[in-house]
Design a protein around this nucleic acid. Structure first.
Lengths: 338, 338
DNA sequence: GTGAAAGCGCTAACAC
DNA sequence: GTGTTAGCGCTTTCAC
């Protein structure tokens, strides 16, 4: 049967308190007893029961991560760096996939906060702050990742969405493009809203007509871009901005099939998924925006651990910057400027 | 402070046993009491503490998944379907990323099996069965995914590696290719071994010279393919087989850059990552092998849950089949034959 | 330097 | 149809 701490105590001829303290180095134990304890442990093959321990201490050493889409390279990479951060600190990672479904997110948050995890990392698909807020038990450590709310009640780690889009429009306008289309993600997401708003402001600032028909929304899933593309092409766009990696590769592929030439028939700026070598092929035909996914994950991981250890720490907002890779700056090989 | 089951019992004027049974529907409770209990629960905002519950019952409702590389699309997709399977059954998923490092796998298995999860799904990077075996506590529910061991002590869900590679060689030989190279993954993995062995057998069966220099191993990470490619090109290959999705896209890109034309200068057969639209561009220039990742994940998920519920169930070995997409069969649009 | 013992919140005999 | 209560395995206070 299961070996418990009492078995070890009995065999070593000490109390369970001593065994516990020996294992956890939580008070002084003479070298002698320590040896006896470790001997008993290894002879019995004892492993402390994690669930008894978390029950007793209230610490699960586990963080939950609510993700909108695991198989999306952007989030997969983020999960990887979050996991790395956690494992270094002895924490485990529980994944919940919402598939951009608000009800699923709700269920998952409820489940995870009910004593399963010490803290929560959330890339929320919920658009209503009140709805989100009431899911979180008072004082529960939460860090928002990539997506935020207007109300700044929770700490967050995000990537600036405004700057790269604003710049994209300006650069395209500078090239002489007049009808610049944009394909955003789900309209309810903070990231999408920020990008669209940057687009609108930049269009206005550059003196270009803000035609509502130039704004399209995809769902960041496979093939959601093609419909938007058809519509934008009908609007006679001379340039377009695609706000997400998967939709960007779909776009490239789709235009390629249609025989539309990048940088010639149409100018393109697109978000690229970190590390995906596919975009290299087109690196000299379009501008690209690369988000610092790994840093995002690492930073979010650090933040949530900090919050778990220090729940009363002040709200923290970190905004990272994407790198912008313009394609035709003379002499520039890989000018990832910020 | 924390609301416990006793608070609810007190408020509802019943015993904790009744509250517990009401919540869990584990014995009959009169409609009257039931109402009182639920009323108290909602008034107090009570949520049963998951860790107390798992401590008491020994069930964590959580499965661990040991993955070699989360950001690899193949595994990311698998994680997604595993997660979906679990969430339907009220189970949670803990991810551990080994990065193809045997020591990390060892640590992770030890941690997870120590009372953190009810069962383990493992895509192992360990090559030595004995080493793996001694990490698993006796009777602990384990299902191997994608990668197995010679010794069939654990249930497994895999994809046939032999058949598609054998067929690839035959098809290439049939086209008249003589020097067929192959790029495998890490040599120690069962998947790699099976593929290389299929390759060797097929080469022999087709009467082609089995030159050791035609066999190269990458590590399935970004850019690991290019070195292998250079070497194979120097060996004057007229065809090559690339055994992994990421290396395959690297290959395509690299050959493209070098001006080597697919299906003309060189014949290519490659594994494709499920759902990645990139390969579509080249669908008419090469044969491709698509593994049933989602089915693999779903099936593995089902198997481990079954094992958790029925630990004495007989060892189960499931082998799925990849679909093979030859490119130039007349009239075939997308003949995913098995 | 070490031990005794009280629980953490819940479930499940067992009792009535 | 419901209540009493003994623990699950561990940590930690208090005592010596």
């Amino acid at each position: 049967m299961k070996v418990t701490i009492s078995d070890v105590a009995r065999m070593a001829g000490v109390s369970t308190a001593t065994v516990s303290h020996t294992i956890n180095k939580t008070r002084y134990v003479s070298e002698d007893t320590r040896d006896k304890v470790f001997k008993a442990i290894s002879e019995l093959g004892y492993t402390p029961d994690a669930s008894a321990r978390s029950f007793r201490t209230g610490k699960k050493k586990t963080i939950g991560f609510i993700v909108p889409d695991i198989s999306n390279k952007f989030f997969a990479t983020m999960i990887e760096s979050v996991e790395q951060c956690f494992s270094q600190e002895g924490y485990h990672l529980i994944i919940a996939n919402t598939k951009e479904d608000m009800d699923r997110e709700e269920t998952n948050i409820r489940l995870l906060t009910a004593g399963l995890v010490d803290g929560l990392l959330v890339a929320s698909t919920i658009d209503d702050f009140a709805r989100f807020d009431e899911l979180i038990p008072a004082g529960f450590p939460v860090v928002l990742v990539d997506r935020t709310f207007e109300t700044k009640k929770y700490s967050s780690v995000c990537v600036s969405n405004f700057q790269p889009i604003y710049r994209s429009v300006c650069r395209l306008a500078g090239k002489g493009d007049r009808r610049i289309g944009i394909i955003g993600g789900l309209p309810r997401l903070s990231t999408t809203k920020e990008r669209i708003s940057a687009y609108q402001q930049a269009m206005a600032d550059c003196g270009l007509e803000a035609d509502q028909n130039l704004i399209r929304y995809g769902n960041s899933m496979e093939n959601s871009a093609s419909k938007c593309l058809d519509e934008l092409l009908e609007e006679h766009c001379d340039a377009m901005i695609v706000c997400q990696g998967l939709m960007a590769s779909d776009t490239i592929m789709y235009l390629h099939k249609k025989g539309v030439q990048l940088g010639k028939d149409i100018d393109l700026v697109s978000f690229e998924d970190y590390d995906s070598s596919f975009y290299q092929l087109y690196a000299n035909q379009m501008d690209s925006i690369v988000q610092p996914v790994e840093e995002l994950g690492r930073s979010a991981g650090e933040q949530i651990l900090r919050r778990v250890r220090e729940p009363e720490a002040p709200i923290f907002e970190k905004v990272l910057t994407s790198s912008y890779r313009p394609y035709n700056i003379p002499g520039a090989q890989n000018p990832s400027d910020r």
